[in-house]
Amino acid sequence: MGHRSTTTGAPNALLPRRLVELGGRGPEDVVADPRGGVLTGLEDGRIVRVDGLGDPARTGVRVVAETGGRPLGLELLPDNALLVCDAERGLLRIGLDDGVVRVLADRVAGAPLRFCSNVVALADGTVYFTVSSRSYPLEHWIGDLVEHTGTGRLLRLAPGETEPEVLLEGLQFANGLAPSADESFLVLAETGRSCLTRYWLTGPSAGRAETFLDDLPGQPDNLWRAPGGPIWVALAGPRVGALELLHRRGPAVRRAAARIAVRAPFRPPGTMGALAVDDAGRVLHHLEGRRARFRMVTSVCEADGRLILGSLWERGLAVCDLPAAPG
């Protein structure tokens, strides 16, 4: 049973305390490690680790690997390895001790695996990941959101396998993933529908998908589960009424609008946002910043006592205060 987003009250302020330059553009996803550091991938293929985010005097950035493609979603593994959704190369595994990059999967259903977006690994070693679009590449992502292609997918890669299994199709720009605390279901962001979808892994509904949280106050991007805490949802942009009206038009009209959109100059609006939700679909935090100097928040995580924001658009990370506990 899905929930409607109960975010009608005024959101709390989301204010960057400082920005951390990374020497490269587009830290699209951010994930925290147990030592308080953050890992992120840049447009030029580098994976960097950022330490000391809670103290400007200790902050340091170092390169830990290079994918040779365009890294997006990341998942840290217990053996100090990193899963990477690379928009150009597929699903990768990187050893953080030696920087060695290994391709886990680069084809699905006989076709090249492109624009994989976010990934999680469960306790049994099964890997789940999303493909945002099979119609548009990453550099033309806006075309998919305008055309509303519904070509997103949820995939599963079982331990020892090299060919992913398609679990769900027809998703509207499938994006972030996060497991429930007991790993009985996955929460999946559909950016093109401004909603979160639940995919059941166990129980009588196993293999079924349903709406988890609908009518979000923005377009959800990456998800990140805080250890012992909520699921953080990055809101990459506000809802756009004209776009939602366009989605009700026929395919030919949407395709024509998408052709214009991919050629038009793009600059994100000056808003930033994030939600924290629990496994019952309740919104615990709604954070928003207007006239922001940090735009297009595509990821959120907690690290070193701070809330860290990543962005496909920016050249660094934003460091914010953690919100007070709800209630």
Rank of each mutant, 00 (worst) to 15 (best):
R62W: 10
A123N: 13
M272D: 10
L14Y: 10
D86A: 06
P56G: 01
L243F: 07
P137V: 02
T191D: 06
A252P: 00
F185R: 01
A178Q: 02
E244P: 02
G41H: 09
R114D: 11
A226Q: 12
P56Y: 00
V233L: 09
E161I: 04
E288L: 11
L196A: 04
G68A: 10
P268S: 03
S117K: 15
W141F: 15
L72A: 10
G270R: 14
Q219R: 15
E88I: 07
D144P: 03
V120Q: 03
V30T: 03
V253D: 10
G152P: 01
E139W: 11
G250V: 06
R254D: 05
V103T: 13
R248I: 09
G125C: 09
L213I: 12
F294S: 01
A261F: 02
L307V: 10
D215Q: 15
F212S: 09
E66A: 13
P16A: 06
V253F: 01
C85R: 07
V119M: 05
D29F: 06
D44P: 07
R198S: 04
F294W: 05
G2Y: 04
L216S: 02
R17N: 13
H286A: 08
H148D: 15
N222T: 06
L245C: 08
P159T: 00
R282T: 13
P269K: 12
S135M: 14
F266R: 08
E190K: 11
G90D: 09
V277N: 03
L14C: 01
V103R: 06
A105F: 10
V61I: 12
G176F: 07
A109M: 04
G160D: 12
D221A: 06
T211I: 15
P204I: 12
G36E: 03
R89T: 00
L122T: 08
N175H: 10
D98F: 11
D97H: 12
G241R: 14
V166W: 05
A236C: 15
L19E: 08
V64D: 08
G143P: 06
G41W: 00
L155S: 04
I308L: 04
E314L: 10
G327Y: 02
T197C: 06
L246H: 01
L188D: 04
V64A: 05
P159G: 07
V119N: 03
V38I: 12
T151D: 04
A65G: 05
P251H: 06
D278H: 09
L246M: 10
C116P: 01
A111I: 08
V300H: 02
P71M: 09
I142A: 11
T151C: 08
I231P: 05
V166C: 08
R114K: 15
L284E: 08
L284V: 06
D144N: 05
L122Q: 11
G110E: 08
V240R: 15
E169T: 15
V103N: 11
P238N: 15
G229D: 04
L39N: 01
I308V: 13
V119D: 00
